[in-house]
Design a protein around this nucleic acid. Sequence first.
DNA 1: TAATCATTCCAACGTTTCTTAGATTGTTCA
DNA 2: TGAACAATCTAAGAAACGTTGGAATGATTA
Lengths: 216, 216
Amino acid sequence: MKSARKIKDLLYEQVARIGKVFSSPKRLELIELLCQGEKTVETLAREASISVKLTSAHLRELRMAQLVETERQGKNILYRLVNKSVADLWVQIHNLAEERLIELQLALQKIATQPNDLVPSDRESLMKAARKGEVVVLDVRPSEEYLNAHLPFARSIPMEELRQRLGELPKDRAIVAYCRGPYCLLAVDAVALLQQEGYSAIHLREGVAEWAVTSK
Amino acid sequence: MKSARKIKDLLYEQVARIGKVFSSPKRLELIELLCQGEKTVETLAREASISVKLTSAHLRELRMAQLVETERQGKNILYRLVNKSVADLWVQIHNLAEERLIELQLALQKIATQPNDLVPSDRESLMKAARKGEVVVLDVRPSEEYLNAHLPFARSIPMEELRQRLGELPKDRAIVAYCRGPYCLLAVDAVALLQQEGYSAIHLREGVAEWAVTSK
DNA sequence: TAATCATTCCAACGTTTCTTAGATTGTTCA
DNA sequence: TGAACAATCTAAGAAACGTTGGAATGATTA
């Protein structure tokens, strides 16, 4: 019989394979992007501002840990998360980080133009207001991501088109903008633009992954 | 204004600080031990079969990520997890690992003497049976850990004392043994001993941390 | 106050990981 | 079939990490 110690070492080593994936900033960014839907290597590289080669190397780690799966589509290879557990883990890790790390809290505070521009994270009342049409929930991510999944009652105007399409939005109601999550700056820019143009805009930190986490 | 890229890099880097903690097998083992309650450096070192110095170094990482807190008690320094989120994250990571990594599944299968010695993870019916006294839920961890927290209706007989205290257990009812979690081998040994002595014993893979995870 | 004990800090080694560059595979389109 | 393209594989230097030994800290006990 193998020694108990060796068996245990083997078990923890396997779990650490998963942990390692979440230990690199760039891999975390890729995971967050994959939470928005399947993407090609090139798209991921562009969005994360890294080279295709490096992206491929990081994706290899994700693949070896069995956290993503690939599908060839013509010339491109699409990557996607294997299931919701992966997205959940990402959300739980960044929630814990936000809860514990003062440096992160400070950095996040600096991003939001004004603290009261933030939506208090009370999902039920926000959804109630959205259902009644009292507020407009606005998804400013690229439209593919909106099509893949979006918050209930949300409308899609990608950030790139927002300036041209301002006329579609009402000035007499609050506009709640969201994007990929708390580390995506699209909604921050959207709120800044909207406020500048005289809209009453506020920022919802959560994205679809955060929203979909089972317990809060 | 700082470039958006720099801000994002900073944010993901902070989250990665938390991820890094979960990327080392030995640190994972320490976290699992700390899930059972507060412990001294020496105890942690002994249980994880590593030197005190190395334990201290790993605990330093945990401290710098703000995931543990310390308290001096006489000569010793007690370490404990700052809150339940940390234990939850450990449980979620090892659950995902068990779900995705075939190597881990195989290793875990080898441990259990027989597949049918495992309790089907149906908490409600187990608790129902335990409440009625139809089964005996047996905690074989050291008694301090039992005192810190244990499953409902559980009785404590530390593995070290089990052989001497066999008489306390009934032979006409099923005995459900558990320990620190799926990677702790105490309950495996307990089940083996009990079965050898003619008891009807089965193994519950989950420990208190797994049991306490909000959603399953 | 000195001696002891538990723990941490510091420095150093070998190992792993990150990142980039060059060559290679597999697919599509002409 | 060959050219163009997307992505991966391999190799290699730089950076970070795990681990160990020796010195230092801080509390307790005699």
